[in-house]
Write a protein that binds this DNA or RNA. Structure first.
Length: 971
DNA sequence: GCTATGACGTA
DNA sequence: CGTACGTCATAGCG
């Protein structure tokens, strides 16, 4: 059937929905913790079901619709197969309780739903598909159950949720053929052979889709395969013959009934009146926000009937997305030469004057940072307004690889506020237009918006262009708005924040008519050109930035963006460009040595085990340790297997002294673990050295860690060993480059504790820091009520562990474990500690309780993190969220302070004309490569920048060390 | 090729 | 039964 035929028929499709399977898929796809009402009613399945339905209705415009449900009490299938859908029967109460809500939802919208005693929803759907066909409708079956595939034909398409729940796969006969290599009629044969895990139906062991399809295509259909079972060779043939009975049963069970008497005709299934008041009453009960309501109701063409109730809704959207995103690929103007480019800029972009006027309205760093010293409220009160991006900003988007030290620009796209765009290929950017672009950037960058300032700096630098700080970075803005969402790329961020579904070409599904009914047409649609992709992307940047701007303003985070995050990007770009010089010979020597030690240990382990076990395979180790050697397991992993982690091995080692073979094996295994890990670290470092300059250019991720910290990848230079002497050696391979003299390491002492002292206002803790004495000893003397001289090393270390554990939400159980004391003793320490530092206790409690009320925590600079888990009714989930909520403002404020310190330090170095550079940041430590003769000056400048990053109630203490390599710079 | 898991390195 | 990360290797899927 062609698209033309459908239009000729003059009516929209019939949509039939498998209510149960959709609810199941929604339930398991969406985190129940984020979808629970304040009285504990889970709503994730209702939400997913409703959103899905609304999206499908919007896209497909059906004129008839019906939802089928299973009925309690089982079906003829259960009589044939006692275990049938056993896994589903055991559905959690959290899901079952939502089914009546879904039916209630349908009632309020006058959508027909049908259940029939003794039959499944599937049979109702099969029947409806047949009825639809007879009545001349094309039919869409929305179902998460693969059994529905057998219904697909020229008039019936199955919409099947894929790995990502909301991404529907259009299962036409062609699509089924392509995926399973059988036709829809034969699909149930294939399913009978393979079995269905989710329905508790066993298939032939070891046989999946591939083999089932091979057999079916060889012999024709299931009966033919079973008739020829003798001919099938190998283990799989044997397995097949063993379960012929089961397979025949499977096939009977998965056949859908298609001729039930439902007591309705297709023409009865039109859309009825929407009971607006009932819908709203239901949505109130479900605590759906205004955005969710609008989105759902939009599908039912009644968005204008609905007035928001003012419930909080974090996914609040801008106007254009609420009324439906009208996405259009911008049109590119041709620019052949420099004159045309310059003329285009003059005509379409904000002028240099307008750009610099915009720069004048930006906040100054110093007063903002000072104000934060008086508390977050004071800082937020003077948060600057963000300019109206849609009128005052232009957009720049570069394509290519932004890898530090190896960046490559491919294409540059510019979008003007008036909608005009240009696309420039690398040859132009690096060639003819280079000079004109440099001027354009210098003059107009302060009105520019990008997605990923840091990446863009690398990309443009690859084309010989410098990129000064733009007006707005949508990537950083998105990170501030929702730090727990990790955008993999621009498309994902766009789709996430604007709630847009993307198709396979990473283009948004347009609201109406975008989904052609015919699968063929989709397949034939032309792939977008590189230029179209580039134009789409710059448009995504525009829409995303305009969407995020009001959210940033509403939270008063524009200063955080402009004064901390964007300048941090500048510093990080410099660090990534500079890279860290390593001594390859030294690394090679260490690698060989670690390798040799690992091999020795392995030889001993293999000898004692009596076989060549792979010591890096927990699975194989479990067998040797707990089966062959018969050792008693210490603890289980989260999946129920026995743990072979170092702590368990250590305990096994200590308790196996009588058993020489096991003891030797464990000792060798532990040594192998340690040395082999070090070997791997050394090897991965060597692999990432850039051959052009002998330096390692890590990438600092600025939008990954939800607390506001940086992370380091490719390679991770924030986890180079430091605890054990052997591992620490690796640090000696990090050395100053040729034009430099030494490495300087500066780190904050006890920043997080100092932040706690400041934020809690606890006088005793503040005095402890002001005293300048050995902090942990001082605290111990207070906690134990003795003089400093009387504090034993044990007491000091116990108090130290307690202090550090505070910011993590450490339990007394955990403390006891760590200190190797009884829980009772740990509890005594805890009470003594908190009676000494009462305000710290109150502060930590207030963090969690405030977060429970507000739903989020804030750092001293207003960086937020949301904690939906605090409202979970599952204790473990909730307590985990409580610990994270306790930690986030402390870890996050430390991150804010370090970012400011980095910006200040780099600024001071530049002001003083120093050649020394920051090369690494390890959360509370900065490593600098120091130029000749600058040691003293740089130490002073950086120390000062760090110590005076912000003004707290306690001093910030920085300790420094300098040396010929990173290890020697330790202090 | 992909994803999940267990292990382990850092602050 | 402490937070926050990234990477390696294996193992199972295809």
């Amino acid at each position: 059937m062609s698209g033309a035929d459908q239009k000729a028929s003059g009516k929209g499709p019939l949509l039939v929905v498998d209510g149960h399977s959709l609810a199941f898929r929604a339930y398991y796809a969406l985190p129940v913790d984020s979808f629970t009402t304040s009285n504990g009613q889970p709503t994730n399945a209702v939400w997913g079901f409703a959103i899905m339905l609304s999206e499908v209705i919007t896209a497909e415009q059906p004129t008839r619709m019906c939802v089928a449900f299973d009925m309690a009490g089982g079906t003829f299938r259960n009589k044939m197969m006692p275990g049938y859908k056993g896994t589903r029967q055991a559905a959690p109460e959290e899901l079952l309780s939502q089914l009546p809500l879904i039916q209630n939802f349908l009632e309020t919208l006058s959508v027909r739903y049908i259940e029939k005693q003794g039959y499944e929803g599937d049979d109702i759907i099969g029947t409806l598909a047949t009825m639809g066909e007879d009545a001349g409708y094309r039919t869409l079956v929305l179902s998460g159950d693969r059994d529905a595939f057998q219904l697909a034909d020229d008039h019936v398409t199955v919409l099947f949720p894929g790995y990502h729940f909301r991404q529907l796969k259009r299962m036409t006969p062609e699509a089924i053929q392509e995926k399973y290599h059988v036709s829809p009629e034969v699909y149930p044969d294939l399913a009978a052979l393979r079995g269905e895990q989710s329905d508790n139906i066993p298939g032939v062991p070891g046989v999946g889709d591939t083999f089932a399809a091979r057999w079916l295509n060889e012999y024709g259909d299931l009966e033919a395969v079973l008739d020829n079972a003798e001919k099938i060779k190998g283990k799989k043939g044997e397995a097949l013959r063993k379960c012929i009975g089961q397979i025949r049963l499977n096939r009977k069970v998965n056949a859908l009934v298609r001729d039930l008497d439902l007591g309705v005709t297709v023409d009865d299934l039109g859309f009825g009146r929407i009971h607006t008041d009932k819908v709203n009453a239901l949505f109130d009960r479900l605590e759906f926000g205004s955005h969710t309501r609008n989105k759902i109701l939009k599908g039912f063409n009644c968005v204008e009937d609905f007035e928001g109730t003012g419930l909080p809704d974090n996914s609040k959207k801008t106007d254009e997305s609420e009324t439906g995103l009208a996405f259009q690929t911008p049109k590119a103007d041709p620019v052949e030469d420099v004159e045309a480019f310059e003329a285009w800029c003059r005509e379409h972009l904000p002028s240099p004057k307008e750009s610099s006027e915009l720069a004048e309205t930006m906040p100054d760093a110093e007063p903002v940072i000072q104000a934060a010293g008086d508390g977050l409220k004071a800082a937020q009160a003077q948060d600057t307004a963000c300019p109206d991006l849609s009128k005052q900003s232009w957009y720049l988007h570069a394509e290519g690889s932004s890898k530090p030290g190896a960046a490559k620009l491919e294409r540059l796209t510019v979008l003007a506020p008036d909608g005009h765009a240009i696309v420039l290929e690398d040859q132009q950017v690096s060639g003819d237009l280079n000079q004109a672009l440099a001027t354009m950037l210098a003059e107009r960058i302060s009105s520019c918006t990008v997605y990923g300032y840091k990446e863009h700096t690398h990309l443009l630098s690859a084309a010989g262009l410098t990129l000064p700080m733009p007006l707005f970075d949508a990537k950083l803005a998105g990170y501030l708005v929702e730090p727990d969402f990790h955008a993999v790329d621009l498309e994902k961020a766009f789709a996430h924040f604007l709630h847009v579904l993307m198709n396979d070409d990473e283009q948004p599904e347009v609201e109406q008519g975008a989904l052609d009914f015919d699968g063929d047409e989709d397949a034939e649609r032309d792939k977008p050109t590189d230029e179209q992709i580039a134009l789409n992307r710059v448009e995504y940047v525009r829409l995303l930035a305009e969407h995020l701007k009001p959210l940033i303003e509403e939270r008063r985070q524009f200063n955080l963006l402009r004064i901390i995050e964007m300048p941090t990007s500048t510093v990080l770009t410099g660090m990534e460009d500079q890279g860290a010089k390593v001594d390859l010979d030294r690394l090679k020597g260490m690698g060989d040595q670690f390798g040799a030690e690992a091999q020795e240990a392995q030889a001993i382990a293999w000898d004692r085990a009596g076989e060549e076990v792979n010591l890096q395979s927990p699975k194989q180790l479990q067998k040797v340790l707990f089966e062959d050697l018969g050792l008693k397991p210490i603890k289980r992993t989260k999946n129920g297997s026995y743990s072979t982690n170092a702590a368990s091995l250590q305990r096994l080692y200590l308790t196996s002294v009588g058993n020489e073979r096991a003891n030797d094996f464990l000792g060798a295994l532990l040594r192998h673990r340690e040395t082999n890990k070090l070997k791997q670290i050394v090897n991965s470092l060597m692999e990432t050295v850039n051959p052009r300059d002998g330096r390692i250019h890590t990438t600092f991720e600025q939008t990954v860690a939800a607390t506001g910290r940086l992370s380091s990848v490719d390679p991770n230079l924030q986890n180079i060993p430091n605890k054990n002497a052997a591992g620490r050696e690796i640090r000696s391979a990090f050395v100053p480059g040729e034009r430099f003299e030494s490495l300087l390491s500066c780190d904050y002492s006890q920043v997080e504790l100092r932040i706690m002292a400041d934020l809690s206002g606890d006088e005793a803790l503040i005095d402890a820091f002001k005293s300048g004495a050995d902090f942990h000893k001082y605290v111990a003397s207070l906690v134990y009520g003795i003089s400093m001289d009387e504090v034993t090393p044990d007491q000091r270390s116990h108090v130290k562990a307690m202090s550090y554990g505070l910011a993590y939400g450490l339990s007394t159980y955990g403390l006891a474990q760590q200190l190797n004391v009884s829980p009772a003793e740990a509890d005594v320490l805890r009470s003594q500690y908190f009676s000494t530092f009462g305000k710290v206790h109150d502060y930590l409690e207030s963090l969690v309780s405030d977060a429970s009320v507000k739903g989020y925590t804030e750092t001293i600079f207003g960086r937020r993190r949301y904690f939906p888990g605090l409202r979970s009714k599952r204790r473990t989930t909730r307590e985990a969220a409580e610990r994270a909520a306790l930690n986030a403002p402390i870890q996050g404020s430390a991150a804010d302070i370090m970012k400011i310190a980095m910006i200040k330090a780099q600024h001071s170095l530049a002001q003083a004309g120093c050649k020394s550079r920051i090369i690494l940041q390890i959360h509370d430590e900065l490593v600098l490569e120091v130029a000749h003769g600058e040691q003293e000056q740089v130490t002073d400048l950086v120390t000062d920048a760090m110590e005076h990053a912000v003004k707290l109630a306690v001093p910030l203490d920085v300790s420094t060390g300098i040396g010929a390599d990173w290890q020697q710079a330790a202090h």
